[in-house]
Amino acid sequence: MATIVFMDHDEGAFNPNSLGVLAKAASLGGEVTAFVGGSGIDDAWAGGLGAYGASRVLVADDAALAGLPQPLVDALEPHAREADTVLFGAGVVSADVAAGLAARVGSGINCETTDFTLGEGGVVAVRPALGDTVMVESTFASSPAIILGRANAFASEPTGSGTAPVERVAVTVQEWSSAARMAGREQAETGGVDITEADVLVAFGRGIGGPENIPVVEQLAKALGGEVAATRAVVDAGWTSYSMQVGQTGKTVSPKLYVACGISGAIQHKVGMANAGVIVAINKDVNAPIFEFADLGVVGDVLTVMPKLTEALAGR
């Protein structure tokens, strides 16, 4: 039973979702190989994955492996072909590598996986589907089986303190994989309010209409003694800054109160805030997925409800 876990990393830090999947795989018993691809990888750092249960670490070190998915598929492919299972934690690059690998080796892939088993009984992956209204259990008719976890589904706690032996492996990059290149990077801005520390968050999505309405959100946040947060869509659209973003590629928050204003509640957002104590959603679309997991759902015009709510809070 050969299991490989692909380790996404950036700036010397492993993606917690990759660590979580590694720890989960190791907890099921058997040998687990961690695969680390990148440029200028430190062996001691990679070997530290022993603390999360890796029994050995494969390091593919090549300048072509810095941040883009396709060269990582090339580097991983020969090892994946010898494995029974290749596991990925949630992540932008991880998802691309998992899907590219599935196509390359002709394997089945399970996405948004929240639980899995390995070993004698075969590989079984569980994912919530259809807006998390149903749990789907799948097996695989291919080897390797490829599993891509859901964000924050697996806890990334170290399981021991051991270091794992590191083996450096050769890399052959395909021609088309070199046809994309990293041209620049905008780091997430630091400083300002840390939304992960706030007890109350008032978050907005595209449903508020436009950036000109952000002050209405700010006033509500102020009335509730909270901070403002946002969805990926409004950050991508340039309405507000990345540091305010909640969700899969943003922050994971668990405030006592989360007020979602004009947010549909896509899974990428849900995984970042589902653990909030009380969730209130205001949305005009009665079919918005957020109503499925909100404690209080208000079906109405968010630009009307927000100022009235601010007013009502002030009058207490």
């Binding site: 950036d10 700036e11 993606n15 941040g67 883009l68 992540g91 932008v92 690059v93 994309a180 290149r181 990293m182 041209a183 620049g184 990077r185 905008e186 780091q187 997430a188 801005e189 990926r232 950050v235 991508d236 990345y242 590629t249």
Partner: peptide, 10 residues
């Protein structure tokens, strides 16, 4: 967008 901000890719 990635988990770290924005990448510009050509």
């Amino acid at each position: 967008q990635t988990e770290h901000g924005y990448d510009v890719i050509e």
